[in-house]
Simulated assay, not measured.
Amino acid sequence: MSKQLPVLSSREVIKALEKSGFYTIPNRGKGSHVFLYRDDPPKGITIPNNRELKRGTLRAIIRQADLTVEEFLALL
């Protein structure tokens, strides 16, 4: 059974994903979104730039980053 995800801001999620090898590509996100990319293995993720991300959105971002919830929580 997976742990309950906390309510996080997009800034906190971006910082955690940067620890796992992602980096921000300037001017790639559209409007109120931020685009993160990882070289090895190649992967791109678009994250909405909100004060609070819904738990379902956060779970989808974690899944797209090829991480488990436990791995993501360890990055926080």
Score class of each variant (00 low, 15 high):
1 M>V: 07
1 M>G: 11
2 S>W: 05
2 S>R: 12
3 K>H: 11
3 K>S: 05
4 Q>L: 14
5 L>E: 00
5 L>N: 04
5 L>C: 05
7 V>Y: 13
7 V>T: 11
8 L>C: 10
9 S>R: 09
10 S>D: 13
10 S>L: 06
12 E>I: 02
12 E>S: 09
13 V>E: 04
14 I>Q: 06
14 I>E: 06
15 K>N: 05
15 K>H: 10
16 A>K: 13
16 A>D: 09
16 A>Q: 04
16 A>L: 06
17 L>Y: 11
18 E>G: 00
18 E>L: 06
18 E>Q: 15
19 K>M: 08
21 G>K: 07
23 Y>L: 00
24 T>K: 14
25 I>F: 03
25 I>E: 14
25 I>K: 08
26 P>G: 10
27 N>P: 01
27 N>H: 13
29 G>H: 15
29 G>V: 12
30 K>D: 07
31 G>R: 10
31 G>Q: 14
31 G>K: 13
31 G>A: 10
32 S>R: 15
32 S>W: 14
33 H>Q: 08
33 H>K: 04
34 V>Q: 07
35 F>T: 15
35 F>P: 01
35 F>S: 15
36 L>S: 05
36 L>N: 02
37 Y>E: 07
39 D>L: 08
39 D>Q: 10
40 D>K: 13
40 D>Q: 11
40 D>A: 08
40 D>F: 08
42 P>T: 02
42 P>E: 11
42 P>F: 10
43 K>I: 14
43 K>G: 05
44 G>I: 10
45 I>E: 00
46 T>P: 01
46 T>D: 04
46 T>C: 02
46 T>K: 06
46 T>G: 01
47 I>N: 07
49 N>R: 13
49 N>Q: 13
49 N>M: 08
49 N>A: 12
50 N>M: 11
50 N>Q: 14
50 N>C: 04
51 R>M: 08
51 R>A: 07
52 E>T: 14
52 E>R: 15
53 L>N: 10
53 L>W: 10
53 L>R: 10
54 K>M: 08
54 K>E: 11
54 K>S: 15
55 R>T: 15
56 G>H: 12
56 G>M: 05
58 L>S: 03
59 R>K: 15
61 I>Y: 02
62 I>E: 03
63 R>Y: 04
64 Q>P: 01
65 A>M: 04
65 A>Q: 00
65 A>I: 00
66 D>M: 10
66 D>P: 00
69 V>C: 04
69 V>R: 07
69 V>S: 00
70 E>D: 12
70 E>N: 02
71 E>I: 00
71 E>N: 02
73 L>S: 02
73 L>G: 03
74 A>C: 06
74 A>T: 06
76 L>E: 01
76 L>H: 02
